[in-house]
């Protein structure tokens, strides 16, 4: 089971539900209904001390609208500017959609477990993402790029519903050039689309992997992750070599509200990044 890497300073706060003040520094539209917000903590000491690991999330609070758990999508080596790629899907995220540079909001975190990059060192890493699921994996890509030689083959398998739904496409060329083998697919192509068409797990048929030295990190819709895991295990990867990031309703992020339970797991504490072997009895179970 993965463990929480919530920093001691976050755990030690007198009131763990009280957000800190953050300010929007930049807003970058990524796709229809998806933007990346770059945030800075207003308190200089808090901003200087802020660190996060790839896969961790913050609670973003818009007073009057509510609070949402959003993964950090930016570079962990530049933690003073905290990036959140947000799909405007619910009442809080639609409120966040209105924020402009200079606007204030609440932020607390980071919380939860992280992608185990240390386990991927010296091995091959397959990053598999669907839709907005690439956001919590982007810090993995950026971390790998900082130390590309520390890893074996690194592959990114990514898919979206349609070409304009794909995130970070302008970065793909740089990632590819820096040694990340990138395969992209869409569910429905447009006329000018020259790439793959089909669901993400099918991209496994376009790659070769060595099950003895490969680690898989995946994030996307649960149905996609189920078939990603199926394809990985079909290629004889051990269950312990597959990590996924899960999502459930979450109100507090500190283990009090009970909403994010997935069997014995609190996704806010032992998750969101989990080892597949640890949750296998519960994963993919209907209505669980």
């Amino acid at each position: 089971m993965s463990v929480s890497f919530t920093p001691a300073a976050v755990r030690a706060r007198a009131d763990p539900m009280l957000p800190g003040l953050a300010v929007v520094r930049g807003v970058k539209p990524e796709a229809y209904g998806v933007s990346t917000f770059s945030l800075a903590l207003a308190d200089p000491a808090e901003a200087a001390a802020y660190r996060f690991l790839p896969g961790q999330f913050n609670m973003l609070y818009l007073p009057g609208f509510g609070e949402v758990a959003i993964s950090v999508s930016s570079d962990p080596f530049e933690p003073q500017l905290i990036g959140h790629t947000i799909r405007f899907a619910g009442s809080v995220t639609r409120g966040l959609a209105r924020l402009q540079p200079g606007d204030a909001l609440g932020l607390r975190g980071p919380y939860g477990s992280a992608w185990p990059l240390e386990q991927a060192r010296g091995r091959d890493l397959v990053i598999v993402a669907g839709g907005i699921g690439l956001a919590p994996l982007r810090p993995v890509v950026l971390s790998v790029l900082r130390e590309r030689a520390a890893y074996g083959r690194v592959l990114l398998l990514y898919g979206g519903r349609t070409p304009p739904d794909l995130l970070y496409t302008e970065e793909f060329e740089r990632w590819q050039a820096a040694g990340i083998e990138t395969h992209v697919t869409v569910d429905r192509a447009s006329e000018d689309w020259r790439g793959q068409v089909g669901v993400v797990p099918q991209l496994f048929y376009r790659i070769r992997l060595d099950p003895r030295r490969t680690v898989v990190f995946t994030c996307g819709p649960e149905i996609m992750m189920r078939f990603v895991i199926y394809e990985a295990l079909a290629r004889r990867l051990p269950k312990e070599g597959v990590y996924l990031s899960m999502e459930r309703n979450m109100k507090c992020a500190v283990g009090f509200c009970g909403h994010c339970q997935f069997g014995p797991t609190f996704l806010c504490r032992q998750g969101p990044v989990l080892n597949f072997a640890a949750i296998e009895p519960f994963f993919g179970r209907e209505d669980f």
């Binding site: 509510g66 509200c257 909403h259």
Partner: peptide, 24 residues
Amino acid sequence: CFCTTVEDASNLAGTRVERTRLWD
């Protein structure tokens, strides 16, 4: 049983907000 949810109540201008935790 300890589960809770949260709700915000604000003034009409949206400039004063009180955040409340409730049993869920």
